[in-house]
């Protein structure tokens, strides 16, 4: 499974807007790049990213070949309850990856 890295605060004050940073290893092959024989290398990208906070979707992104290799995405959420942030990446050729981190809200 692909290696992913999440950077989110482990603790936050109720109502605080927190930043979540995500990084995942993926080549993001565009499908437009010719191989040595001139034929395009088949597309192999992550197409979808979803972040859920205690089961509720808070951020989703549809990705296209113009997203750089090893996709990096940062976004915000309001820390309103203690719980879990779940991350999911879906892509070509059956690619899926998941990651989760816990957050304590005081």
């Amino acid at each position: 499974m692909a290696r992913a890295l999440i950077n989110a605060p482990a603790k936050a004050k109720r109502g605080e807007v927190i930043e979540i940073k995500t990084l995942i290893s993926h080549i993001m092959e565009t499908g437009f790049r010719p191989d040595s024989t001139g034929k395009p290398v088949p597309r192999d990208i992550i197409t979808e990213f979803i972040c859920k906070y205690n089961g509720e979707e808070i951020f989703r992104a549809e990705l296209f070949p113009a997203i750089a290799a090893n996709p990096f995405l940062t976004f915000f959420t309001v820390a309103d309850e203690t719980g879990t942030l779940n991350f999911e990446w879906i892509g070509d050729n059956g690619f899926t990856a998941t990651e989760s981190v816990n957050i304590t809200v005081e």
């Binding site: 565009t30 906070y53 951020f59 992104a61 995405l73 940062t74 976004f75 959420t77």
Partner: peptide
């Protein structure tokens, strides 16, 4: 629930 309407990424 985002609290702030902003995101960052890296593009080609």
């Amino acid at each position: 629930r985002a609290g702030r309407a902003s995101f960052s990424t890296r593009i080609r």
